[in-house]
């Protein structure tokens, strides 16, 4: 059983067990998805566009209900507690922070106000120390603290999105495509900082990425999603040696992405 391998030794901070997710009571997007994130670990969740990665994260952070989505089967446990019935803002205060796809900074607010807003994620009131920690990881944000967030560059906005999470010192951060739309150099920078946060703060990360190579560089375990199901999972060292994974997700098979998709459709080894 794959979950056993992932959780072996440590307790999982997050355990998703066989969930199904349906939007608008009709569109089924996740079909029996299971995954687990050990305490303090970095776990990658990969897969093509539309595979259901974002949906998985929203199921975990309980934002699904805001979009007419519902978990119709299975269960999710965070820090050994079932999350069913919790409001998203309650879950955040317990230490599960979801950094949304596309950064989603509060554009009309200044950098500092964005961080102030994020202090609602802290367990007890505001912590000035939280601000200093954010500015230590992202000196650039300190320089721009009075700027309106809407005027920041994409990289700076991504820093702010992660900074907002950092202020709450969560046990688990869900990161949805932090590399989206950033230049390769910026992606490197962001990933270095993400890795540092994991190392130094002990924050577990569930990292959704299109950029599999980048994700493999910092993750210890990975799940690959295809139409709402996990099709491959394992320790990253093993997946990196896997021929199929190399070909489809690391782009080392000498084929274009389109060929790969076409090939996949024919081969049907996935289901």
């Amino acid at each position: 059983m794959t979950i056993a391998t992932a959780t072996a030794g440590t307790a999982a901070v997050l355990a998703v067990n066989n969930i199904e997710v349906v939007y608008h009571d009709t569109i089924q997007v996740l079909r029996g998805l299971s995954l687990s994130v050990p305490r303090g670990a970095v776990v990658a969740l990969l897969g093509a566009n539309g595979a259901g990665k974002t949906t998985t994260l929203k199921a975990v952070s309980r934002l699904l209900e805001l979009e007419n989505g519902a978990v119709t089967a299975g269960d999710i446990r965070f820090a050994d507690q079932p999350i069913a019935g919790l409001a998203p803002h309650t879950l955040v205060r317990r230490g599960l922070f979801h950094v949304l796809e596309g950064r989603r900074v509060f554009e009309d607010l200044t950098v500092e106000e964005n961080l102030t807003a994020a202090t609602y994620a802290c367990r007890s009131g505001t912590a000035r120390a939280g601000f200093e920690l954010v500015y230590e990881y992202f000196p650039r944000l300190y320089e721009r603290r009075t700027s309106t967030a809407g005027y920041l560059s994409g990289g700076e906005q991504q820093m702010l999105a992660i900074g907002r999470a950092l202020i709450a010192s969560p046990q688990l951060m869900l990161l949805d495509e932090p590399s989206l739309g950033l230049s390769p150099i910026l992606v490197e920078t962001i990933f270095e900082i993400i890795a540092r946060i994991n190392r130094e703060q002990g924050t577990a990360l569930l990292l959704v990425e299109q950029n599999a190579a980048m994700a493999f560089a910092i993750a210890s375990y990975a799940y690959i999603l295809e139409t709402g199901k996990v099709v491959i999972d394992g320790p990253v060292e093993r997946l990196m040696r896997d021929e199929d994974v190399r070909e489809f997700y690391l782009g080392q098979g000498g084929r274009s992405y389109r060929d790969v998709k076409h090939y996949k459709r024919r081969k049907r080894w996935l289901s």
């Binding site: 952070s61 805001l66 949304l100």
Partner: peptide, 8 residues
Amino acid sequence: GAAYTVGI
């Protein structure tokens, strides 16, 4: 949506 995610 983002407001929910920062604990508001």
